[in-house]
Design a binder for these strands. Structure first.
Length: 417
RNA sequence: CGGAGAGUGGUGUAAUGGUAGCACGAGUCCUUUGGGAGGAUUUAGUCCGGGUUCAAAUCCCGGCUCUCCGACCA
């Protein structure tokens, strides 16, 4: 990608009343654009990050044996009435069509997935079954917050599992926990993310949330010093002990809920009278679980954690590009060599954004580079060409390395990986 | 939903009742190229509606929007 062609430029300023660091940086660096409060466009750079997160999640879900589908956002009123949530789910966006049929925009998809799966599951032989989608959710929040951390429309991965027994649900639930940990590890937020006991809302008495510690979080959690678990303040008394080892918990820390998992059991299958025939011939309600991850929130949480005064520092697996190639100066020889390096990197299959902009000073290029936060910076300049080399620097390190151009691809394979 | 603050060129801001100014951006030209360069020149603005006043960006009323705090949050 040539930066001269990139849609949207970086901004020097963002509104002074935007205090969330992730919102400031993502707006300034041109990853997102705000249409209205809690409603955002993902620009080319931001979409690349979302797509990478999506790919990581998609692979992990498939490793669980889950199959991906895409359900509609427009969900008829009668489905919500079946579960009682037309009235009880306060955040539904409701609308009416020309045909007088009322709908709600999907805020969660039990009302769609349960009748869908019921059509195809009738025997214990059809279970277990896991279905997921990655799709926009709509929630009429009273208040949106902190850029993409809390919005009214957001991309969500929602996985639904169906089981013949509680035991089978329990087993799958544990597998999902492991898959979630793998996702968090790839996003480099695992060490700050705690499995947190929280209230279940309309789903159940308790639920498990994954809370990532950051000052921008809207929840307060108490952490066990030993286990990697926590308790959400919303459960009440702060004298609660660790639900795993019984130790006293930490002082409250701010955290953001990036994912949650629920054992819905029979709650929604009962509403739709979704039964299967068990081995003994009896008709039983299907046991169900649901598991959500908000993708933009994950992206925002990463930026909250990985940034410095100059800009974002993307973890490599979700960086929009791996390399930021910059050519410095107007020397035609430098430009020619930079073009050659760009083509050679592309040919080697590397994801590279090339700052080929003319009439842009070196200061501005370097500031933009740090702001956008690509993991590896490669500079071609008169200085580097005197050594027949390029200069390589990691975004989060001070050290500069000069690498001979003819050995560059080999170096990238061996050192950068 | 309660509270607070704020809406001025594309962006960020100044002007508290009296000439709408500055910076960035964008356009043209010249110079410049290792940490947001310099000069010349052009461009474009008071959220909407009503009121007070000789005079309103400024004061008053209503509306809309944004941000923050709280409540809420499958």
């Amino acid at each position: 990608m040539r930066q001269s062609q990139l849609f949207t430029k970086t901004l020097k300023k963002v509104p002074k009343d935007e205090v969330s660091k992730s919102a400031q940086l993502l707006l300034r660096a041109g990853f997102i654009d705000k249409l209205s409060a809690g409603v955002y466009t993902f620009l080319p750079l931001g979409l690349r990050v979302i797509e990478k997160i999506e790919k990581i999640i998609d692979e992990e879900m498939k490793s669980l044996g889950a199959q991906r589908i895409l359900m509609p956002a427009l969900v008829p009123k009668k489905n919500w009435e079946t579960t009682g949530r037309w009235e009880s789910f306060d955040a539904l966006f409701k609308l009416k069509g020309k045909n007088k049929i009322e709908y709600a925009l999907g805020a969660t998809h039990e009302e769609v997935v349960v009748p869908l799966v019921r059509k195809h599951v009738s025997s214990w032989r059809d279970l277990p079954l896991a279905i997921f989608q990655i799709q926009d959710k709509f929630r009429d929040e009273l208040r949106t917050k902190s850029g993409i951390l809390r919005t009214r429309e957001f991309l969500m991965k929602d996985l639904y599992s169906f089981h013949a027994s509680q035991k089978d649900l329990d087993l799958f639930y544990e597998k999902v926990k492991k898959a979630y940990r793998r996702i968090f590890r790839k996003l480099k937020i695992d060490s700050k993310t705690y499995l947190t006991l929280a209230s279940g809302g309309t789903f159940s008495k308790y639920s498990h949330e994954y809370q990532t510690v950051t000052p921008a979080g809207e929840d307060t959690i108490y952490i066990c010093p030993k286990c990697r678990v926590a308790v959400n303040k919303e459960l009440g008394s702060k004298n609660i002990k660790c639900w795993r080892c019984g130790r006293a918990l930490s002082e409250g820390v701010k955290a953001i809920e990036i994912a949650n998992i629920f054992k819905l059991k029979e709650k929604y299958t009962k509403a739709f009278d979704f039964r299967f025939t068990d081995k003994d011939g009896s008709r039983k309600l299907v046991m169900m679980g649901c598991y959500g991850i908000g993708l933009p929130r994950l992206m925002g949480a990463v930026v909250e954690i990985y940034h410095d005064d100059l800009g974002i520092i993307w973890p490599e697996p979700i960086a929009p590009f791996k390399f930021h190639l910059i050519q410095i100066g107007t020397n035609p020889q430098v430009q020619k060599e930079a073009e050659k390096v760009y083509k050679s990197l592309q040919k080697a299959g590397h994801e590279v954004i090339y700052d080929d902009r003319k009439n842009v000073g070196i200061g501005e290029k370097l500031m933009d580079c740090d702001l956008i936060g690509i993991p590896w910076r490669i500079i071609v300049s008169e200085k580097s060409l005197k050594k027949d080399a390029v200069e390589i620097k990691r975004r989060n390190r001070k050290k500069l390395s000069f690498v001979e151009i003819k050995k560059l691809n080999q170096y990238l394979d061996e050192v950068v990986g």
